[in-house]
Amino acid sequence: MEDKIQTFRQPLVTATGIILGFILNFASTWVKSDSHLSDFLAYVVGACILFGTTCLIVVLGRVLRMDYPRANAEAYYKRTLKLFIWGVSVAFAGVLIDMFGNFMAV
Score class of each variant (00 low, 15 high):
98 D>S: 15
54 T>F: 15
35 S>G: 05
18 I>A: 13
30 W>L: 10
12 L>A: 02
39 D>V: 08
24 L>W: 09
87 G>V: 06
75 A>L: 10
37 L>K: 06
56 L>M: 01
4 K>Q: 10
64 L>P: 02
3 D>F: 03
78 K>I: 03
104 M>T: 13
2 E>C: 03
52 G>C: 00
54 T>A: 15
14 T>E: 14
81 L>I: 05
83 L>H: 04
101 G>A: 06
7 T>M: 13
85 I>L: 11
100 F>Y: 07
85 I>A: 13
5 I>T: 01
10 Q>E: 15
74 E>P: 01
79 R>S: 14
85 I>K: 09
37 L>D: 01
55 C>W: 01
46 G>C: 01
15 A>S: 07
62 R>Q: 15
74 E>T: 06
56 L>R: 01
41 L>W: 04
14 T>G: 05
81 L>M: 11
67 D>Y: 04
101 G>F: 00
73 A>T: 04
66 M>E: 10
105 A>M: 01
57 I>R: 01
85 I>F: 08
54 T>E: 10
8 F>P: 01
87 G>F: 02
36 H>Q: 14
31 V>Q: 14
105 A>E: 00
98 D>W: 12
95 V>P: 02
45 V>L: 03
63 V>A: 02
88 V>N: 06
12 L>K: 03
12 L>V: 05
8 F>G: 05
62 R>I: 10
33 S>G: 13
71 A>S: 15
40 F>L: 13
64 L>M: 15
28 S>T: 15
96 L>K: 05
90 V>I: 14
7 T>Y: 11
73 A>I: 04
74 E>L: 09
41 L>G: 00
1 M>T: 06
52 G>V: 03
28 S>G: 10
89 S>A: 09
51 F>K: 08
62 R>H: 14
71 A>H: 14
64 L>H: 09
81 L>G: 03
54 T>N: 11
103 F>Q: 04
16 T>K: 08
105 A>R: 00
97 I>H: 03
85 I>N: 10
94 G>C: 04
62 R>P: 03
100 F>Q: 06
72 N>F: 12
40 F>I: 14
32 K>F: 12
20 L>G: 11
56 L>F: 00
21 G>V: 05
52 G>E: 00
65 R>V: 04
95 V>G: 02
40 F>E: 15
66 M>C: 06
24 L>D: 15
67 D>V: 07
58 V>F: 14
102 N>A: 11
55 C>A: 10
32 K>E: 14
75 A>F: 10
51 F>N: 07
89 S>V: 00
93 A>F: 12
14 T>K: 12
2 E>F: 07
105 A>D: 00
28 S>P: 04
37 L>M: 11
91 A>V: 09
25 N>C: 10
